[in-house]
């Protein structure tokens, strides 16, 4: 006696159904055990940023290492694979930087260098022509024949209001002019920090940007300065 085809088909379907039901939990658990592959590696050369300077570059006035303007600039203006070096010491002059930092910086083959010096030179009475000569040599060396972007900060001599007052005006202008000329002669970019700080102070009345005695920047001031350097970098 032979079975009708419909009964045979029904039997086949039942067997297939049972098989699928028995195998399904295994299939699900296998999916959960797999990991997604690694994301693609970002392309392009790695950026190396070197910050050269004195107390301001060390971040005096910041309450946390993250609040220093160099850190903020590094985080906001550079890609994640960038490396940052901070070569700075309190009271550093341009001559100090030329002697101690320039060769170190060149060894790191930086793509971007920020230089914030000059106030200590002014305080220590470095002759302006000597200052100008050292600044030109420093910027030229750092430029590495144009392969490095060098951003130079102007002097910050006042927390708010006027840029200078009284007898200091002439001296400050002389140092600032020396920086500007050295930057212009070597292809470095001058970042007018003083003007930027004054403008920000005017916009945010009541917010302290510079520490009393010009010994550093408040956390808010660090953000402003980082913003000024970031803007200059965008236009390089």
């Amino acid at each position: 006696m032979t079975r009708p085809p419909r009964a045979r088909l029904r039997k086949l379907l039942i067997v297939l159904g049972l098989g699928a039901a028995a195998l399904s939990p295994g299939a699900c658990s296998r999916i959960s055990a797999t990991y997604a592959g690694p994301p693609p590696q970002p392309a392009g050369p790695r950026e190396t940023y070197v910050a050269i300077g004195g107390a301001e570059t060390l971040g005096f006035g910041a309450e946390d290492p993250r609040q220093t303007w160099t850190q903020i600039l590094y985080r906001t203006a550079f890609p994640p694979r960038a490396t940052m070096y901070v070569l700075a010491t309190t009271g550093a002059t341009v001559a100090d930087a030329l002697a101690a930092f320039a060769q170190q910086a060149l060894g790191l083959k930086p793509t971007v260098v920020t230089v914030w010096l000059g106030l200590s030179d002014m305080e220590m009475g470095t002759p302006v022509n000597e200052f100008a000569q050292d600044a030109r040599t420093l910027f030229r060396d750092l430029r590495r024949h144009g392969s490095t972007t060098v951003l130079v900060a102007s002097l910050v001599t006042s927390a708010t209001g006027s840029i200078c007052s009284g007898a200091d005006c002439g001296l400050i202008s002389a140092y600032d002019d020396a920086l500007a000329q050295a930057a212009s002669a070597t292809g470095a970019v001058l970042v007018n920090v003083q003007l930027g700080v004054v403008a920000a102070a005017a916009r945010h009345r009541g917010v302290e940007l510079v520490l009393p005695g010009l010994n550093g920047l408040t956390p808010e001031g660090q953000v402003v300065v980082a913003g000024l350097f970031a803007a200059a970098l965008r236009h390089r």
Partner: peptide, 9 residues
Amino acid sequence: GYAAERWVT
């Protein structure tokens, strides 16, 4: 003498 910092992300 001075301290030099290196930062990577």
